[in-house]
Simulated scan of single mutants.
Amino acid sequence: MKEQEMLPSCLYSLGREIAEGGHSTVNICQHLESRIDFAVKILAGEEVVAFDQEVCLLKKLQDIEGPFIKMVDLFRAKGKNYIVMDLAPGGDVWTWVRNRSYLTEGAMIKVVHQLLQALAICHENGIVHRDVKPENIVIEEVRSDEPSKVLLCDFGSALDIGPDGCILTDDSMPGTLGYQAPEIFRESGSLEYGSGVDMWALGISAYFMITGDMPFDLGGSVEDYLEACDQFPAICCSDAVDIFLRCCLAPNPAQRWTAREALEYHIFEGLPEFTESPEKKKSRDINKMWYKPSALPEPMSAEEGEEGEEGEET
């Protein structure tokens, strides 16, 4: 019988990989005592700054009820950083659309309504996500063979800029190609951008959900992309959804809807506010965690990590 692989904390067993990013992987893990499944994001030891930044932002949202992933535990060991989080069993929206089918307008509206609530909370707490996309929208519940409850995840690119803050354009190009707002592409240091980049990315994501495609051509130069962003493509959808998409995808961020403004649009009338299930809260109570960076050990060097592994084998 294959021996169960353990996480360094000895509280969880490590399961299969379910996602991979530029500097991290996400696996299923199981809390040994309760047998409850969670997700664990694993970052390399040298990503300590990114780890601390993401954890601090998640901690800021930890006690606010909203449709975003919550932390359960965190630790640093064997040259790696670990964030244990809620597990959304339905996978992500990108995989759903690619492997099954695009969403009906009704299902998309319900999903986007929840994401708008998540973004409104983030923005009002000074957090810009900067990487909203279907891969970072995970499905918690499915009803009538369509996603009915979703969560915003992966705050690895997010920044805390304060309620009225802005970010100066630089060469880092945050986000994912195809979901980046036009203002991000301006000359480095020439323009500030803010939470409007999340609304642009949400508009692109909503378009993808109901078409399975991207609204703007990515094959040319940056100049071609920016020109395409000024010409919203024709789409077979209701007039109400068309207006919503255009208001999210206004090239001028000053004319783009905010999350709170979008929530007032009539297509979202009568939809319920997000509420977290008692079961989810109970599962997270397994580990009441308070993040204290000073309490975390320093990441080991590569040499130290190799020595530790050799010691375990002997």
Rank of each mutant, 00 (worst) to 15 (best):
M1I: 03
K2I: 11
E5D: 13
L7D: 13
A19R: 06
E20K: 12
S24Q: 00
S34A: 11
I36T: 15
F38C: 09
V40P: 08
F51G: 02
K59Y: 01
K60R: 13
D63T: 07
I64L: 15
E65Y: 01
E65I: 09
V72D: 09
D73Q: 07
D73H: 04
A77E: 11
D86R: 06
L87F: 11
V93A: 06
W94C: 06
Y102I: 00
E105N: 01
A107S: 14
M108N: 05
L119N: 05
I121F: 02
C122I: 06
R130T: 09
K133Y: 15
E135K: 10
I139G: 12
V142L: 14
S144T: 08
V150I: 05
V150N: 08
L151S: 01
D164N: 09
I167A: 12
T169F: 03
D170R: 00
D170M: 03
S172T: 14
M173I: 10
L177D: 15
G178D: 09
G178N: 11
Q180W: 01
Q180E: 12
P182R: 10
R186I: 02
S190M: 11
Y193C: 10
D198S: 05
D198N: 03
A206K: 03
T211L: 02
T211R: 07
G219P: 12
G220E: 08
V222F: 04
E223C: 00
Q231C: 12
D239W: 03
A240V: 11
D242I: 00
P251A: 09
Q255R: 14
T258H: 08
R260T: 15
L263A: 04
P272D: 06
E276V: 11
K280R: 15
K281V: 04
K281G: 08
K288P: 00
M300K: 15
E303P: 00
E304T: 01
E309L: 15
E310K: 14
E312H: 03
